[in-house]
Design a protein around this nucleic acid. Sequence first.
DNA 1: TTCCGAATGTGATCCAGGTCACACACCATC
DNA 2: GATGGTGTGTGACCTGGATCACATTCGGAA
Lengths: 187, 187
Amino acid sequence: MDPKELLKGHITKTAVLTEEQFEYFFSHFKKQDFKKGQAIITDGDVVNCEYFVISGCLKSFFINDDLKMFILQFAMPTWWASDYNALYSQSKATINVDCISDTEVLCLSNNDREKLCNEIHEVEHFFRWRTNRGYVAAQKRLLSFMNNNVKHRYEELLKLYPELYNTVPKNLIAAYLGVSRETLSRL
Amino acid sequence: MDPKELLKGHITKTAVLTEEQFEYFFSHFKKQDFKKGQAIITDGDVVNCEYFVISGCLKSFFINDDLKMFILQFAMPTWWASDYNALYSQSKATINVDCISDTEVLCLSNNDREKLCNEIHEVEHFFRWRTNRGYVAAQKRLLSFMNNNVKHRYEELLKLYPELYNTVPKNLIAAYLGVSRETLSRL
DNA sequence: TTCCGAATGTGATCCAGGTCACACACCATC
DNA sequence: GATGGTGTGTGACCTGGATCACATTCGGAA
């Protein structure tokens, strides 16, 4: 898939940009290619960019003191990923991002995003709505965590992203559900 | 506290508005008073507004099929509350909002917010940052849920909001932590 | 072909937290 | 003073999921 067209299709769902505006917007993105298993953001890094996925699949995750992994998000094509806490507050990363498969991304720096938001009202509109959706999704996931048992959450996840079942190893699914690999295996 | 000054102090932390712009912005808010225990948004309602708390305390919560309550958020002065999923998508509420104590709010309709965001770039900037912070907070809470046991989360909550300890009944704290009242009582 | 490591299934045991049941303290209001 | 609701503590028991320990399968590298 052509990166420019993919981004254009994505943003025009919520913002109306002229041809020149989109060209200008797009000119701030930098194409990057990563291999399966490669790290994009590592705990302790200074985080400068967020990433728009073109192809492949990322995961953003947290590693606790016992080296246990918790997955915050899988990022498929047209999804965005970063350590947003570190990115917005210009602090060191506490979240990792790496590649579940070979992945192409478009990279946008925090400074460029803020500059674009400032220069083009519609771009700020787009980013407001992107975060709105993310916020609502995070709240839903939180509620599901409090309310539902593992089996229910697993079925919910598979209904939402059936492609994960065959694409992603089960231990990663378990880390997303916040459950042990063994318990997930027992369905 | 004067509602207008409270809102002004709140918004000028992230957006620069002229005096006239703020007056115009403020003119879209409607002051409302509620009594302790009164419901503001009830499951099934059409949700038209979001609420900026001036004084008192709100809770937004979900009731599951077993009538068990889960608290998404306590809203203290300068916090915002609503059923954002329903508000943004103009669907029926699945989240309730009611008053833990007598509460004064400023009410802003979804239409007015969108209108203001469209008319005044800085207002859109403000709402983008408000949601950014909410999104990051929701992610942190999710991680804390997956990573920490009840005791740890309870201490975390009290460190973050010490005023809750004496203000809010323990069964509500338990509903926020996603734990039974009895377990919380045993610390 | 053989070997190795990653991914997965499964049994045995343990424990944090849920559920149920009561007791009690603190108020309101009648 | 009696009555009733609401918040809180605590004991007894149960259970979902964690943990540890092995076994099996499979794909890639030598």
